[in-house]
Design a binder for these strands. Structure first.
Lengths: 187, 187
DNA sequence: ATGTTTATTTACCGATCTGTTAAGTTATAT
DNA sequence: ATATAACTTAACAGATCGGTAAATAAACAT
């Protein structure tokens, strides 16, 4: 398989899993939609689980790169980027294909605490929280970790409700709440 | 089927779906675990989807009854109940079988916007939000709906993160955030 | 040109999926 | 006692699940 063909496969599999769910998307469909035969898929991934893990890895990279880039485009100070978080998330919610957070959905379908899919999803959230804590520290927050955790709560809540209501309105509610919390934590 | 036998069936199906997921739980397993034959199940529910909808209806009643009861046990004023919300949620997170919000998981697996399962999940959130708005109005909030929406964002975020991290810590972060928002909205 | 690897198609495996059919059992009501 | 309904077991569809084996075609190096 050409090296970039594998990337196309994972990327297309991402769309299928994201749009239809993990259990509901069979490997036959993945093969049909990617044009890669099932035999070839299983040459590169020993199981469906391994393919899902590769998909989640790609999603983590894509999403974090996109988020960080959009935050930097909106503000060049740590505090400004924290305040811009829910404006950027609102952009995401308003994109045509928005269907919620892939990691939340993955851990909802594979909820055993020691399932690799669950662990990798938890890791994604951990990396994001560390980034927010880094920004909070740069902005001079008295307790950067606490502010980061609070922003994470708002972020996950906004994503879930935006997906459930098919509306970007929760981003505005979260934005208002975040502004108050940031003001309180930094001054 | 005896009238209470049907209730036992739905209740046991709830446990199975909640613990294993919806697609991952087959009707054969439901029949085996409930002791109700598959034929009898299909006498009362025309499809798996109808059973799931009955399960969600039961969950909505159970959860809201439990939540309202616990809130009233902790405070007898609207504002007090709003402030107690995340203490009560923390109780939930620390219960042995806690596995996140069933409605979020249901809408994650059946994400088509017009899927009855998705619509019923959205309805549950709507009813809860209306209750919070009622409390906020009783507490004298200047914009009760806005406060209710913000609390919903915190609530969903706390639930998702508690499930993902297998910890009740997000309840404390959400509690602190909620206290600031309530103080700001009511004074 | 020839041998070797690499990828593809096609068909298949056993298990499980939702849902049904047919025949037998149990309980209830008259 | 007997008719009727409720419920059971058991087997069966037809489709799909994740995953493989064998045969074929294309790319490659020598």
């Amino acid at each position: 398989m050409r090296p970039n063909k594998r990337g196309e496969l994972v990327r297309k599999a991402l769309d299928l899993f994201y749009g239809n769910g993990f259990h509901a998307t069979g490997m036959d469909l993945v093969a049909a939609e990617t044009g890669v035969s099932k035999t070839s898929i299983y040459k590169h991934f020993r199981s469906k689980e391994e393919l899902i893990l590769a998909v989640l890895k790609l999603r983590d990279e894509d999403f974090r790169t996109w988020l960080y880039t959009r935050l930097e485009a909106r503000a060049d100070t740590p505090r400004g980027q924290l305040e811009a978080l829910f404006d950027v998330l609102q952009e995401w919610f308003e994109q045509p294909g928005f269907q919620g957070c892939m990691f939340i959905k993955a851990s909802a379908e594979y909820q055993s605490p020691d399932d690799p899919i669950n662990l990798q999803s938890a890791d994604h959230k951990q990396v994001l929280q560390a980034h927010f804590a880094h920004l909070a520290a740069g902005a001079g927050a008295s307790d950067p970790d606490a502010l980061a955790r609070q922003l994470m709560v708002l972020k996950e809540g906004a994503i879930v409700l935006a997906a459930l209501t098919h509306s970007s309105a929760p981003a505005r509610d979260a934005r208002a709440a975040a502004a108050a919390l940031i003001e309180q934590a930094i001054g």
